[in-house]
Amino acid sequence: MLRRIAGNLFWLARYLERAEWRARLVDANYRLLVENPGSRKDELWPLLTVTGEWELFCEDYDTADERSILAFLTFDRRNRSSIASCLEYARANCRAARNRISSELWLEINTLHLEARRWNSDLLLSHGLMAFFAELRQHFYRISGLIENTLPRDLGYDFLSLGKWLEAAENVTRLLDTRYHFLLPHPRDIGSPLDFAQWTALLRSASALESYRNTYGNQIAIERVVEFMLFNPTFPRAARFCIDHLQSALKRTPGAWNGETEIIKSAAVDVPAADNLFNKLRSGTAAAAIAGGLHEYLLEIQNDCAAIGDQISAAFFTGE
């Protein structure tokens, strides 16, 4: 597999995953507004803090109301992390790696990209935002299904996996970090009905609410949510699950080479940051993470993820 193509596949998966997480995040928080009577028009703004795009938003918009924030996060192309932008980058990577992708998968991604080009505020709100996101979710599920069902389990699949799991792990920490930023504006709110609704929304935006309840029952407690979202080995959007799978994809990459003739061998693949995070998530507990400061712990994982990304890039995508 060409280094460039491996990079395209890695980034294709990352952007798809990012777009999907974005959609979940916006959807869940919008839902929270709808289900809480009396919420204010600007109550989506903390999303801009979570995503780290508050300043960029202020450059382009005068008012932070529902409409402008939704536009910014969903289809504004000046925002490189809007859902539509992520889809555009995903599609560009997909196109460059087109001959490693099944026609069915390409068709689905290209169709979604073309649809995203037509998004605007009126379209989003005309059928209701929830319907919009419900349909968008269907697109993402179809894409996942096509990846699972139409691609051979070869190196290409491994690079898609690396991108997907790395992005997912990073997004889980960002999602949990919303707690730090705005889910707990006042200590007195802890344990209040609003707090409960916010944790529920958080779990729901990771499609984790049902699984969480199956594991821990109806009671939603901070320690258990953190335990579930960071250290659960069986839930696909838990950080540990993601890094476990990233690690096994990484272990497969040298072995997937089927011994073509006349090849100059490269140095052994080396991604120590992945080993590091893998071990951290295996030995970590929610109690310890919270005791030491949850925000700091999440930042640490985000830095680990960045290091993994850099090391994967150096090992596979650049050089000879």
């Binding site: 073509e260 490269s266 000879e320």
Partner: peptide, 26 residues
Amino acid sequence: IELVEGQDLVCKDHKLWMKTVHGLRR
């Protein structure tokens, strides 16, 4: 077959190679 761009290729020892994740391939 592989779809390569100029940046994927390199000439060494008067031979043409493409840059793969496992090193250079003829």
